[in-house]
Measured scan of single mutants.
Amino acid sequence: GLEHMADEEKLPPGWEKRMSRSSGRVYYFNHITNASQWERPSG
């Protein structure tokens, strides 16, 4: 619920959580730099 939404908002600017269609794993994508990574971004 609300706790999940608050957790999402802690991601650094530009980052969003996405799911890989090929593997079904969650990864993180930065739409500003077009960077993507499996680890949760910090800072």
Rank of each mutant, 00 (worst) to 15 (best):
F29L: 02
Q37M: 06
P41M: 00
S22P: 10
F29M: 02
S23P: 04
P12T: 01
D7Q: 10
K17S: 05
S42I: 11
P12V: 01
S42K: 09
Y28L: 00
M5R: 10
H31L: 14
S36W: 15
P41N: 02
P12Q: 02
E3Q: 11
R25H: 07
F29W: 08
G43I: 13
T33K: 04
S23D: 12
M5K: 11
L11C: 00
E9T: 08
W38L: 08
R40E: 06
Q37V: 03
R40T: 08
L11E: 15
E3A: 13
P13C: 14
E39L: 05
E9R: 07
E9M: 08
G14D: 04
L2K: 14
M19L: 14
R21G: 10
K10A: 15
Q37S: 07
I32L: 11
G14Q: 03
M5W: 12
F29Y: 15
M19A: 06
G43V: 12
G43S: 14
K10C: 14
M5E: 11
K10V: 12
R18Y: 05
Y27W: 05
S36A: 13
S22G: 11
S22T: 12
G1Q: 11
S23R: 06
S42D: 11
A35S: 13
E3N: 10
Y28M: 00
E16V: 09
R25Y: 05
S22L: 09
E16P: 00
A35F: 08
H4Q: 11
W38N: 06
S23A: 09
E16S: 07
K17V: 09
G1N: 13
N34H: 15
R21P: 14
A6F: 12
S42Y: 10
K10G: 13
P13I: 07
P41I: 03
K10T: 11
S36R: 15
H4C: 15
H4T: 13
V26W: 11
E9F: 06
W15G: 00
P12K: 01
Q37F: 03
N30W: 00
I32R: 07
E39D: 08
A6E: 14
R40Y: 09
Y27F: 10
L2H: 14
P41H: 01
E9N: 09
L11F: 02
L11M: 04
W15I: 00
N30C: 02
H31A: 12
E9I: 07
N34C: 15
F29Q: 02
P12D: 02
P13H: 09
S36D: 03
W38Q: 05
W38A: 05
R25T: 07
G14I: 01
E9S: 08
I32D: 07
A6M: 12
E8F: 02
R18L: 05
K10S: 15
W15Q: 00
L11T: 02
E8A: 09
R25D: 08
W38Y: 10
M19V: 15
L2G: 13
K10M: 12
N34F: 08
P13F: 10
G43F: 15
M5Q: 12
P12W: 02
R25N: 06
Y28D: 00
S42M: 10
L11G: 00
G1T: 10
Y27M: 02
G14E: 04
S36I: 15
R21Q: 12
E16Q: 05
I32Q: 08
S36N: 04
T33Q: 04
E3L: 08
N30M: 02
T33I: 04
Q37G: 01
R40F: 12
G14S: 03
H4I: 14
W38E: 06
E16I: 09
I32H: 10
M19D: 03
E39I: 05
R25S: 05
Q37H: 04
H31N: 14
M5V: 13
G14R: 01
S23L: 11
N30S: 04
T33P: 00
G43L: 13
S23H: 09
R25F: 05
V26G: 03
G24P: 02
M5H: 13
W38V: 06
R25K: 13
W38M: 06
R21E: 13
T33D: 04
G14Y: 06
G24V: 03
E8L: 06
L11S: 01
L11R: 00
G14K: 01
G24L: 05
G24T: 03
E16W: 02
A35I: 15
Y27N: 01
N30D: 03
F29G: 01
K10E: 14
S42N: 11
Y27H: 03
P12G: 04
L2S: 14
E39N: 06
M19H: 10
M5C: 15
Y28Q: 00
P41T: 01
T33N: 05
E3G: 12
Y27Q: 02
V26R: 04
R40N: 08
S36H: 11
Y28H: 00
Y28F: 05
H4K: 11
E8D: 14
Y28G: 00
E8S: 10
M19W: 14
A6I: 11
E3I: 12
D7H: 09
R21M: 11
T33Y: 03
R40P: 09
E3S: 11
N34M: 10
V26D: 08
G1D: 13
R40K: 12
E8I: 09
V26L: 07
A35R: 14
G1W: 12
D7M: 08
D7K: 08
R21V: 13
G14M: 03
P13T: 06
G24S: 05
T33M: 04
H4G: 12
H31G: 07
D7P: 10
A6Y: 13
S22R: 14
G43D: 12
R21S: 12
E9H: 07
E3M: 05
N34E: 05
H31Q: 11
R25Q: 08
T33L: 06
M19F: 15
H4F: 12
L11N: 02
F29I: 05
G1H: 11
F29S: 02
H31F: 14
K17W: 02
R40W: 09
E39A: 05
P13K: 06
E3R: 08
G24E: 05
E9D: 13
E8N: 10
G1A: 13
W15P: 00
E8V: 09
G24Y: 03
S42L: 10
I32M: 09
S22M: 07
W38S: 06
D7A: 10
H4Y: 09
S22Q: 11
S36V: 15
D7V: 09
G14H: 08
P13R: 05
M5P: 10
R18A: 03
E16R: 04
L11W: 02
E9V: 07
E8P: 09
L2C: 15
N34K: 15
E9G: 08
P41G: 01
H4R: 10
Q37C: 06
Y28R: 00
M19I: 15
W15N: 00
G24Q: 07
N30Q: 02
E9Y: 07
H31V: 15
G43W: 15
F29H: 07
K17Q: 09
S22A: 12
M19S: 07
E16F: 05
Q37N: 02
V26H: 08
S23Q: 09
Y27P: 01
A6Q: 14
Q37P: 00
Y28S: 00
K10D: 15
Y27R: 02
V26F: 11
E16G: 04
P13D: 09
S36Y: 14
A35Q: 15
G14L: 02
R25P: 03
S23E: 08
M19C: 15
G14N: 06
G43Y: 11
G14A: 03
K17R: 11
P12A: 03
H4E: 11
G43H: 09
R18K: 09
R18I: 07
F29E: 04
L2W: 12
F29T: 03
E39K: 04
S36T: 12
Y28T: 00
L11K: 12
Q37A: 04
S42G: 13
R21D: 10
S22V: 14
S23F: 08
F29K: 03
S23I: 06
E16M: 05
K10W: 15
D7C: 14
L11I: 04
T33G: 02
S42R: 09
G24W: 01
A6G: 11
S22Y: 08
N30A: 00
R18H: 05
R25W: 06
P13Y: 10
P12E: 02
K17P: 04
G1M: 12
G14F: 06
L11Q: 07
A35D: 09
I32V: 09
H4P: 14
G43Q: 10
K10L: 14
N30L: 01
W15F: 01
I32Y: 09
P13S: 07
R40G: 02
P12L: 03
D7W: 05
G43T: 13
H31T: 15
T33W: 04
N34Y: 06
D7I: 11
G1I: 12
Q37R: 04
L2P: 13
V26T: 09
G14V: 01
A35N: 09
W38P: 04
I32S: 06
